[in-house]
């Protein structure tokens, strides 16, 4: 069963729609559960945390006890995919919402894009199609995705490059476009909006 966590993130509908497209109506009805329940999350073998919007929204995860449920499920080996703010939540936190803690699976804080980069004004948010670079050859999430493939981003905060970074994207310097350590994965881009490349990433996750 795939638990898609509902914490009122804007792209929930689109993520479920993409899963439905890949699985077919019948398997979707059987296997995909949109939920706010820690119990459902504990019973899932795959967990998707969508997200677009403010990091503050992830506070609801702690309030509902979903952070603990996710932590336990990950420890038991459930596959986890965080999308956009969902990836950022895997880090320690974000300067976007000071009091709100992330899961802390990866070290570091998410920070706003710089206003100036190499003395040139940098527009923010980073909106549009940018390329995935330095894709780690052993990444299971990005299997079959070629270096330089374009995916769709929309965000103003970004996660640092860490050991678990599976691909970087350059905009005002390099940031983590994808992270992956064993069963814990995240993408800063929107696979549900990244045409064939994005569908490939989601299919990889479903086939783990």
């Amino acid at each position: 069963m795939i638990a898609v966590i509902d914490y009122k993130a804007g792209n929930l509908t689109s993520v479920v729609k993409a899963l439905r497209y890949l699985l077919g109506e019948e398997r979707t009805a059987r296997e995909v559960v949109v939920t706010q329940s820690p119990e459902v999350v504990r019973g899932a073998d795959r967990i998707v945390l969508p997200g677009v919007g403010h990091f503050q929204a992830t506070q609801l995860l702690e309030n509902l006890g979903l952070d603990e449920a996710v932590r336990e499920s990950i420890a038991k080996g459930a596959w986890f995919l965080g999308i956009c703010v969902g990836l950022q939540w895997l880090f320690e936190g974000s300067t976007e919402a000071d009091g709100t803690k992330g899961l802390g699976a990866f070290a570091g804080m998410c920070e706003h894009f710089p206003v100036l980069y190499m003395d040139v004004e940098l527009k923010s948010p980073h909106v549009g199609w940018n390329s995935l670079e330095q894709i780690r050859p052993d990444s299971r999430l990005l299997r079959g995705v070629a270096d330089g493939s374009f995916v769709y981003f929309t965000h103003s905060w970004r996660a640092p490059v860490v050991n678990a970074t599976a691909a970087v994207t350059n905009y005002g310097g390099a940031f983590s476009a994808a992270v992956e350590r064993e069963n814990v994965m995240g993408v800063q881009f929107h696979p549900e909006k990244s045409a064939d490349v994005g569908l490939r990433v989601l299919r990889n996750f479903l086939e783990l």
Binding site: A18, Y21, Y152, T154, K193, S194
Partner: peptide, 8 residues
């Protein structure tokens, strides 16, 4: 229109 559209 949205049902099978996987771009923004």
């Amino acid at each position: 229109a949205a049902a099978k559209l996987f771009v923004p």
